[in-house]
């Protein structure tokens, strides 16, 4: 498994608010996640989980507040700055894999090489190979994703998130499209990622929650339950 290029950052959220259409859809006054922890966000549909994940990843600008990963407040960065932060520090895993079905597993896992500086491409590709190997897909590196099962696809997506050696992983319902056996395996893999990395997962899956160091429940954009509290 590729080691993070930088030490896992702690996550510190302060006064975070996201407003849309004159309505507050996320309001987190304070939240701190220690470096290397695995945090699960859960809640009913519309509770603000995905909004939270998008703000924490810098894909969505906050209306107010701070989202500090280590020493970097990404809420204060420009869109280009947040993009740079994402590609250099974060690994993302999506519910519906978001893979290029026409490409092979390795080409998907090493996707970021396409925009990386030339000098970093061989290392990134080697990291993608190692990640696929670690996730049990070493022999399937050249297989097209289109012919892979859901579990295999999600592992390819995980390998892609790891190939850039991120210091934090953010995942949105990564087991939602998988059967039980594959979901359990992915939950194990996610848990294994924590430690060297900070992991934030949106999930309703008890198997994922059981492996997390902390579980937070959101409702109407606010934290209503915190296993640490």
């Amino acid at each position: 498994m590729p080691a993070p290029e930088t030490a896992a950052p702690d996550l510190a959220v302060a006064g975070l608010r996201v407003e849309a259409g004159g309505r507050t859809i996320l309001d987190i006054p304070a939240l701190t996640v220690p470096a290397g922890a695995m945090l699960v966000l859960r809640g009913a549909s519309g509770a603000g989980k995905s909004t939270a994940l998008n703000v924490l990843s810098g894909n969505l600008a906050a209306s107010a507040g701070q989202v500090r990963w280590g020493g970097t407040d990404i809420a204060g960065l420009s869109p280009a700055g947040r993009r740079r932060f994402r590609r250099e520090r974060l690994g993302l895993i999506f519910q519906d894999y978001r893979l290029f079905a026409e490409l092979g597993a390795l080409d998907n896992a090493a996707l970021a090489a396409a925009w990386m500086p030339r000098a970093r491409r061989p290392a990134l590709r080697a990291a993608a190979v190692a990640a696929l190997d670690r996730l049990g897909l070493g022999a399937a590196a050249d297989r097209r994703v289109a012919v892979m099962s859901g579990g295999e696809r999600q592992r390819v997506a995980m390998a892609r998130a790891l190939a850039t050696a991120p210091s934090a992983i953010l995942a949105d319902e990564p087991t939602a499209s998988l059967d039980r056996a594959n979901a359990d395996r992915l939950a194990d893999d996610l848990a294994a990622l924590a430690g060297p990395r900070t992991v934030v997962v949106v999930s309703h899956d008890p198997a994922v929650q059981a492996r997390a160091s902390r579980v937070i429940t959101l409702a109407d954009g606010r934290i209503v339950e915190d296993s640490d509290a």
Binding site: R83, R87, L111, W115
Partner: peptide
């Protein structure tokens, strides 16, 4: 596909 690239932090010029 373009949304994925953006979410992963691919530069705008990419």
């Amino acid at each position: 596909q373009f949304a994925l690239l953006g979410a992963m932090g691919a530069p705008m010029r990419f």
